[in-house]
């Protein structure tokens, strides 16, 4: 029994190599070191991996707002994003709104680039906006507990809901308005829970996670799947990837480049 305890603790030691695991686990793991095989943690064999995940949204392929709504609905339903419109006053529903991916008109998605005489398609068809998974994310810089962090392996900006203290510094820091706060318990607003993904609790911040939970089991993000080929997803560091090909062949724009955040969501207009 003592041996297997050590085995488990060795695993804890492995985990401790990552950032910020509880110091207590570190101390315990120092006592490890048995000879029998230890427990291990590993990726799924079919997990999708990349050096730097990126997304290219081809706005030309959307025909109506319905195309966009379908994608939003697909994302929000698998991630248990609540909708309070049935259970609260309109004003409070708006204040407490949570969104991971949503529609913005061109002038709001790209403020400062407004154009009075805009192309008709762009004027009437909103853009899909989401977390830009910045190369140098201001939200990560601001977070006092590393509850939001940039994953080293693939550059996804993630949330650790267990650690978030709800100070909302990240929301003030994000120049894209990509973050939502659970102003109340979300569960009453979730019609049908998806068992493969947890809900959140009141008092924590949430946002798009580039479907890290799907990538881990070999699936592309839900929005990509629901977009009928309008959204591409791939490794920005791989010259042969689909996204790199699209970037080579098309002129693309990104949101608020002048802020130096380095967004990895590209738009073909």
């Amino acid at each position: 029994m003592e041996n297997s305890r050590r085995n488990f603790l060795k695993v804890a030691g492995v985990a401790a190599l990552g950032v910020g695991v509880k110091p207590a686990v570190n101390v315990l793991s120092a006592a490890g070191g048995g000879e029998t095989p230890a427990a291990k943690v590993a990726k799924h064999e079919n997990a999708l991996t990349a050096k730097k995940w990126a997304m290219v949204i081809d706005t030309r392929k959307f025909e109506s707002e319905g195309d966009l709504d379908k994608i939003i609905e697909a994302c929000h339903s698998i991630h248990n994003v609540p909708d309070f419109s049935e259970i609260d006053t309109p004003e409070r529903v708006k204040r407490h709104e949570i969104k991971w991916i949503w529609k913005e008109e061109y002038k709001h998605a790209f403020p400062g680039n407004e154009n009075e005489y805009l192309n008709d398609r762009l004027k009437y068809l909103p853009f899909l906006v989401l977390c830009n998974h910045c190369e140098d994310p201001p939200c990560v810089r601001a977070c006092p507990t590393q509850a939001t962090f940039k994953r080293e392996e693939d550059g996804i900006v993630l949330m650790d809901f267990h650690r978030c203290i709800g100070c909302r510094f990240c929301m003030a820091a994000c120049p894209y308005g990509s973050r939502s706060f659970n102003f109340r318990d979300p569960k009453p607003g979730i019609e049908k829970q998806n068992l493969d993904f947890p809900t959140r609790m009141k008092g924590v911040v949430e946002k798009c996670n580039f479907c890290a939970e799907r990538l881990a089991v070999g699936k592309k993000p839900k929005c990509v799947e629901a977009s009928n080929g309008a959204i591409a997803f791939g490794d920005l560091d791989d010259p042969n990837s689909e996204v790199r090909e699209l970037l080579r062949e098309n002129f693309t724009i990104r949101r608020k480049l002048s802020l130096g955040t380095g967004p990895v969501v590209y738009y073909i207009v």
């Binding site: 409070r92 709104e97 949570i98 706060f181 102003f183 009141k202």
Partner: peptide, 10 residues
């Protein structure tokens, strides 16, 4: 209830 009792918003 949560901070929803305040006037703060997204």
């Amino acid at each position: 209830f949560g901070l929803g009792v305040t006037g703060m918003s997204r």
